[in-house]
């Protein structure tokens, strides 16, 4: 099965990190990504720019409306994702728990819908 692991964390707190902390986090992410590539679980994954760069689009009555910022204001913001292949939810949860941000933020694990 495929799962999308959505990485949420508090952007403001993350922005306060100093250079050495950031370097450490980057190294942890590199090692984690490498490990799930090697285990064959990795499908895709990216980090996202800050929510300050977001634009939200809606079409109402045929008219496009854009708003500055993310869809919802929340305490933690979406900051990245992994798309993985896992045998079941337990394996997916185990991988999610190893994402470095799981220690300070939250990882939402969502199964990918299959059409048959």
């Amino acid at each position: 099965m495929q799962y999308l692991l959505l990485i949420y964390r508090n952007e403001a707190e993350q922005a306060k990190m100093d250079a050495s902390e950031l370097q450490k986090l980057t190294a942890e992410y590199r090692a984690f990504t490498q490990s799930i590539i090697q285990s064959g679980n990795f499908k895709a994954g990216d980090a996202l720019q800050m929510t300050a760069t977001a634009t939200t689009v809606r079409v109402r009555d045929g008219k496009m409306l854009t708003t500055d910022g993310p869809f919802a204001e929340t305490r933690e913001q979406l900051g990245g994702y992994y798309l993985i292949e896992a045998k079941d939810l337990d394996e997916a949860l185990g991988i999610a728990a190893r994402i470095p941000t799981a220690k300070m933020g939250s990882i939402e694990v969502r199964p990918i819908m299959v059409y048959d």
């Binding site: 099965m1 896992a86 045998k87 079941d88 337990d90 199964p111």
Partner: peptide, 14 residues
């Protein structure tokens, strides 16, 4: 069914 919760007894560690 949809989230793939396994139908098994957890292994020793879990």
């Amino acid at each position: 069914r949809l989230a793939g919760i396994p139908y098994e007894v957890p292994d020793r560690d879990a």
